[in-house]
Amino acid sequence: MRQISGLGSWIWQRISALYLALFLMYFISSFILLDRIDYNRWLEWNTHPVNSILLFIGFIMIMLHAWLGIKDVIMDYVHPVVARAVVLMFFALILIVCLVWASQTLMMAMLK
C-alpha cells in the first residue's frame, strides 16, 4: 500500500504521461496522413483492432493520469480528513463514469 502511494504513483504518473504523449502523436498523425476525414473513416480508424486496443489503453491511462494528478493537488491543499475523502471520492466517481462511458462508446462502435 505504501508503495502505491509513494514511488508507485510517481512512476505510474510518468508511464501514463509517456503513453499518452506517444499515443497522441500516433493519433494525430494518422488523421493528418488521411487525405480526407469523414465519419466513416473516423469509425474505421477507431474500430481497427490495433487502434481500438491502443485507444482503450489510452482511456485507462488518461483516467489514471488525471487521478494521480488530482490526488496530488488534493493532498497538498485539502487537509481535513473528511473533506479530503469527499473530494477524492467525487473525482474518483467522475473518472470512473468517464471511463465506463468512453469504453461503452468504443464497444458500441465496434459492434456496429
Binding site: R2, Q3, S5, G6, S9, D72, M75
Partner: peptide
Amino acid sequence: LEGPYRLFRCH
C-alpha cells in the same frame, strides 16, 4: 523516505 509525503510531495 517512502510513502506519499516524506519525499514525494516534491513537485
